[in-house]
Design a protein around this nucleic acid. Structure first.
Length: 314
DNA sequence: TGCCCCCTGCAG
DNA sequence: CTGCAGGGGGCA
């Protein structure tokens, strides 16, 4: 599911909700989703929550780290059913919905001008794979319809040391200082014959860019997504660099992209797609020139572009 | 470098 | 029914 802006949004939400809480119990409903021993993390306190590319990390005291990869349909949803003494316990035996169980901690909020209603629904649901319960009674639900995602227990030290193969070969963080157009060029040029849009999605080229933001970055740069990396000019690399950074920043600004599944830990959708120039807009008019947006398949993935604005003239 | 595959579910 | 979906590992 999530690309960099969505995982970043989840990270920020979890930092607000579960930092410094103690993990009391891990309930594993899908063994294939949880790699490691739950006993190694139960009873531990959360010391840090971070993101690298599309991977989310939760550092615990005692030297273990929980790594999350949400792949296509993973969600991390936080629920704090307010403790109302015995009333809640009694009512919990009834067939109530989660919202009836005690109301969530927060009401609706605003992201990028949009009201963001709570979309969490009843938890757990049929896609809930792992439940993390904290000592204050609140819970974090790892949901994943397609079962591609995972949670791993690792030694924090291993992860910090670059992780060897654990984190894979991950390129520079595009929103950090030091990510220049020259570095993007150098990394992209490892794939001279590849269409530039596909190369952008290689996590060793640049961290966190996926199918939505790769299409948007190509539009921002005015480059045809099919253009071979080896034929991209320096001017175009500069614009591509800007396109990557801007689209990712906008993604974060609007709370991520919700195509079908993404909601943040507080149940809020992301609204970036309302502002996207091409992704998901086939047949609709280009916001810049009015030409209908086209959809093609590149490397098996849906790819969107404006045939007028993205001619890759130079 | 390009496919196929891991899965489930929804829209056409 | 087929095709498609915010990802990415493995294999020729």
């Amino acid at each position: 599911m999530p690309e960099l802006p969505e995982v970043e949004t989840i990270k920020l939400g979890l930092q607000r909700k579960i930092l410094h809480k103690t993990l009391k119990r891990v309930e594993i409903k899908s063994a294939r989703s949880f790699l490691g021993k739950s006993s190694e993390v139960e009873g531990k306190k959360i010391e840090d929550i971070w993101r690298r590319a599309k991977i989310l990390g939760i550092d615990l005291d005692g030297g273990k780290t929980l790594l999350f990869h949400l792949k296509m349909t993973g969600q991390l949803i936080y629920v704090f059913a307010k403790q109302k003494g015995k009333v809640l316990q009694a009512s919990s035996k009834l067939n109530h919905t989660a919202s009836e169980a005690g109301s969530y901690e927060n009401g609706d909020k605003i992201i990028g001008g949009h009201p963001t209603p709570d979309m969490r629904g009843k938890m757990p649901n049929s896609h809930t794979r792992i439940i993390f319960e904290f000592s204050d009674g609140s819970k974090l639900y790892f949901n994943d319809q397609r079962l591609f995602g995972w949670v791993k227990v690792l030694d924090s030290k291993q992860v910090k040391d670059g992780g060897g193969k654990i984190m894979g070969k991950i390129g520079p963080e595009p929103l950090k200082k030091g990510f220049s157009w020259q570095i993007l060029r150098e990394n992209l040029l490892k794939h001279k014959k590849m269409p530039v849009k596909i190369a952008l999605m290689d996590q060793s080229v640049v961290a966190g860019v996926g199918n939505i933001y790769a299409s948007e970055a190509c539009f921002g740069a005015g480059i045809d997504p099919r253009k071979k990396v080896g034929e991209v000019s320096d001017e175009e690399f500069k614009r591509l660099h800007q396109g990557v950074v801007k689209s990712l920043k906008n993604g974060i600004k609007y709370g991520g992209s919700t195509r079908a599944h993404f909601i943040d830990p507080e149940g809020r959708k992301g609204y970036f797609l309302d502002y996207a120039y091409v992704y998901g807009r086939q047949g609709q008019r280009c916001k810049k020139c009015g030409t209908p947006i086209e959809k093609i398949t590149l490397g098996g993935r849906g790819t969107y572009f404006c045939p007028h604005c993205q001619k890759s003239v130079k």
